[in-house]
Simulated scan of single mutants.
Amino acid sequence: MTADNPHNRLDDDDYPAYTMGRAAELLGTTQGFLRAIGEARLITPLRSPGGHRRYSRYQLRIAARARELVDQGTPIEAACRIVILEDQLEEAQRINSEQRRAAARHTAGV
């Protein structure tokens, strides 16, 4: 299989493989919920050539976390902000961990 083979995209977390209807079905929510978290800028779906919203697996995980918070009674705007902050924290921790490993390798090599 070549890199351009569409089957390779199935492993890509960022590939927009899911239609709005399928995404809502997988999340057990409504298309309105997906539109609302899009309006809150939690996720920005890509658009198909026909203008339809398409979602990636990564976006579905983010949407699922927001839905979990909303189901617990958190207002949608607050849920979106919480998820954004959680995502930023996770990324900062990952970067921090990488920098610690690089510093440890540097120290060990000196």
Results as ranks from 00 to 15, higher is better:
Gly28Pro: 07
Gly50Leu: 03
Val70Ala: 13
Leu26Met: 14
Ala63Asp: 06
Gly32Lys: 10
Asn96Arg: 15
Ala64His: 11
Glu86Ala: 09
Arg53Glu: 01
Met1Val: 15
Ile82Val: 15
Phe33Gln: 06
Ile37Leu: 12
Leu42Val: 06
Ala103Leu: 13
Arg105Val: 01
Gly51Ile: 02
Ala40Ile: 08
Arg67Ala: 01
Gln59His: 07
Asp87Phe: 01
Thr29His: 04
Asp12Asn: 15
Thr74Ala: 06
Gly28Leu: 10
Arg61Gly: 11
Leu42Gly: 04
Ile95Cys: 05
Asn5Asp: 15
Asp87Arg: 15
Glu77Phe: 04
Gly50Pro: 00
Pro45Arg: 04
Thr29Ala: 12
Arg81His: 03
Pro75Ala: 08
Leu42Gln: 02
Ala78Pro: 00
Ser56His: 01
Thr2Phe: 09
Val70Ile: 03
Thr30Gly: 05
Phe33Thr: 03
Gln99Cys: 06
Ile82Gly: 02
Glu39Arg: 15
Leu26Arg: 11
Leu69Pro: 00
Arg53Asp: 03
Asp12Pro: 05
Asp14Lys: 11
Leu27Ser: 07
Gly28Val: 11
Ala64Asp: 13
Thr44Ile: 13
Val110Met: 04
Thr19Glu: 14
Asp13Pro: 06
Arg101Tyr: 04
Asp87Val: 03
Leu27Asn: 10
Ser56Met: 06
Leu60Gln: 09
Gly51Ser: 07
Ile62Ser: 04
Val70His: 01
Glu98Leu: 13
Ile82Leu: 13
Thr30Val: 07
Asn5Phe: 09
Arg105Glu: 09
Ala108Arg: 04
Val70Glu: 01
Asn8Leu: 15
Gly32Ala: 11
Thr19Gln: 14
Leu60Ser: 07
Thr19Leu: 15
Arg41Ala: 15
Pro6Ile: 11
Met20Trp: 04
Gln88Thr: 08
Tyr18Arg: 05
Glu91Leu: 14
Ala24Asp: 08
Ile62Met: 14
Leu46Ser: 12
Ile84Phe: 04
Asp4Leu: 13
Ser97Leu: 11
Cys80Pro: 00
Leu26Asp: 07
Leu69Arg: 03
Ala108Leu: 04
His52Phe: 08
Met20Gly: 10
Ala23Thr: 11
Ala66Tyr: 03
Met20Phe: 02
Ala3Leu: 14
Thr19Ser: 15
Arg100Asp: 05
Glu91Tyr: 05
Ser48Val: 01
Leu27His: 06
Pro16Met: 14
Leu34Trp: 01
Tyr58Lys: 13
Arg9Phe: 03
Gly32Pro: 00
Thr44Arg: 13
Pro49Phe: 02
Leu46Lys: 14
Gln99Val: 09
Ala3Ile: 12
Ala24Arg: 11
Glu68Val: 00
Pro6Trp: 04
Thr107Asp: 11
Gln31Ser: 12
Glu25Ala: 14
Gln88Ser: 08
Leu42Met: 10
Ile76His: 00
Pro75Thr: 08
Asp12Trp: 07
Ile82Asn: 05
Arg94Asn: 13
Asp12Met: 12
Thr44Met: 08
Phe33Arg: 03
Gly73Glu: 07
Arg9Lys: 14
Glu68Asp: 05
Arg22Ile: 14
Ser56Gln: 08
Tyr15His: 15
Arg53Tyr: 02
Arg100Ala: 10
Thr29Phe: 02
Ala64Gln: 13
Gly21Arg: 11
Gly28Arg: 05
Leu46Asp: 10
Pro6Gly: 10
Arg101Cys: 04
Asp87Leu: 07
Ala79Ile: 00
Asp11His: 08
Thr19Met: 14
Thr44Leu: 13
Leu26Val: 04
Leu34His: 03
Met1His: 12
Pro6Gln: 05
Ile84Pro: 00
